[in-house]
Design a protein around this nucleic acid. Structure first.
Length: 424
RNA sequence: GGAGAGAUGGCCGAGCUGGCUGAAGGCGCUCGCCUGCUAAGCGAGUGUACGGUUUAAAGCUGUACCGAGGGUUCGAAUCCCUCUCUCUCCGCCA
């Protein structure tokens, strides 16, 4: 969320930025409402001042005289007036809040302008596309033939976009999760957390999923509880409504969680295979940083995520999301896109973002300076490190052999009990 | 699920027969003094948000906040209602 003050003082700038993002918001009456709010607030507060003063005077009267004090009648009227003013104020506040809460973050100045995915510039490439002297297969064919991925039974148990992993398929996914967690905790200094997989409405609002993206979430019937679409939600909310000490920043967390997404509006996209599931596993990196450090922290976080693919020896590219492709809460985002030879395409495997103070304002996460003693909103960041399911896809497609077996990447062998390859 | 107790400032902890309580007292922390150093001691300070004043900051000032939301009252941390969470006991359970 952007601050009321910032928005009301920069309406034209906001409109301009919204255009870049290709989003729309009705800001027509905003200035009017802000003025109205400030008038009501002032009036209400001055009446409250009067009421407080007079009430104090009444309290000082001897008890015998209190009952007949004309001031009581007078204050009765004032109290009614205050109640009416506050009711109007609440109405205006709600109008303002309804606009602010669905306004996206402002893209950072370094974000490339663009109209869509095709305008995302490539920041760098790592590794090379592997050469095959046969036609590489797609992961779902490989997985089914090896008996490690069972899409039909997943669909039977639950429905479309749910998959049953079996044998070394299940083991490989677990190996990846452990490999990622170990790397980030022991080599990159992140603290591992295992958060709840169900969160309340306040948490979802804090990170920006609610109220705008309710359709993408699984809500538990009759409750204001939701299945998490990413660990970003529970982990960022660790510090909701807290004030941290400056010397405790930055704080870096890594969490494995399953993620649950309705994928509303993606019918017909990636219908086969593991790429787009309603439930998938992900290792997520989350940071809380001082404002002046957050863009440096983003670069580090991105590199921490890249290391996973480097260690796995899989070719990828990093793209910077352009203004139109940026997510709702993000000020800047890099995507890591892994090479999938079976698909002959790069596919997103991680998204690393700096949310600046956008989520911190919603979730009310601040820190107190050591010298200046001021409280300031922190900056929050996060990125996948990485999506486990898609990483498994990348391994199947990049490490496939002509006989349909899968070589195990060196770094994963110890997590696979020394296994060299998965074969029939 | 049943019965009970509780939720106060960074922490502990009073207040809870309504007004003098933004909130006693202690601890912690910060600054100053003192001491050869440390400890002890002395003095002052020590929440957040929003608004007004100000070129700006500081300062001054107003409002709100004693788990959350409503209510009663001229006036509520204190009374009433609802909710959330924590703890104890019983039941059930991985």
């Amino acid at each position: 969320m952007l601050s009321l003050r910032f928005v009301s003082e920069n309406l034209d700038l906001i409109k301009e930025k919204l255009k870049l993002r290709k989003t729309d918001a009705n800001l027509d009456d905003f200035a009017k409402h802000v003025k109205e709010r400030s008038d009501l607030l002032r009036e209400s507060e001055s009446l409250k001042y009067k009421k407080n003063q007079v009430s104090k005077e009444i309290g000082q009267l001897p008890p015998s005289e209190r009952g007949k004090s004309p001031q009581i009648q007078e204050m009765k009227a004032v109290a009614t007036q205050i109640k009416e003013l506050d009711a109007s104020l609440a109405e205006v506040d709600a109008k303002i809040e309804n606009v602010l809460i669905i306004l996206p973050n402002i893209p950072d100045a370094s974000v490339p302008p663009g109209g869509g995915e095709e305008d995302n510039p490539t920041v760098r490439l790592w590794g090379e596309k592997p050469e095959f002297d046969f036609t590489p297969k797609q992961h779902f064919d490989l997985g089914e033939e090896l008996g490690i991925l069972d899409f039909e039974r997943g669909a039977k148990i639950t429905g479309a976009r749910f998959t049953l992993y079996k044998g070394f398929g299940a083991r490989l996914e677990r190996a990846l999760i452990n490999f990622m967690l170990d790397t980030h905790t022991t080599e990159h200094g992140y603290t591992e957390v295992l958060p709840p997989f169900i969160v309340n409405e306040a948490s979802m609002t804090g990170t920006g999923q609610l109220p705008k993206f309710k359709d993408d979430l699984y809500q538990l019937e009759g409750l204001d509880y939701y299945l998490i679409p990413t660990a970003e939600v529970p982990v960022t909310n660790i510090y909701a409504n807290e004030i941290l000490a400056e010397e405790d920043l930055p704080q870096c967390f890594v969490a494995y969680t399953p993620c649950f997404r309705k994928e509303a509006g993606s019918y017909g996209k990636d219908v086969r295979g593991l790429i787009r599931q309603h439930q998938f596993n992900k290792v997520e990196l989350v940071k809380f940083s001082k404002p002046e450090d957050s863009f440096d922290e983003l670069e580090k976080l991105l590199q921490n995520a890249e290391v996973i693919l480097q260690k796995l020896g899989i070719h990828y590219r990093v793209v910077a999301l352009c203004t139109a492709d940026l997510g709702f809460s993000a000020a800047k985002t890099y995507d890591i896109e892994v090479w999938l030879p079976g698909q002959n395409a790069y596919r997103e495997i991680s998204s690393c973002s700096n949310f600046t103070d956008f989520q911190a304002r919603r979730a009310n996460i601040r820190y107190k300076g050591k010298s200046d003693k001021k409280t300031t909103l922190v900056h929050t960041l996060n990125g996948s490190g990485l999506a486990a399911g898609r990483t498994l896809v990348a391994i199947l497609e990049n490490y496939q052999q002509v006989d349909g077996s899968i070589k195990i990447p060196e770094v994963l062998k110890k997590y696979m009990g020394g296994l060299e390859k998965i074969s029939k």
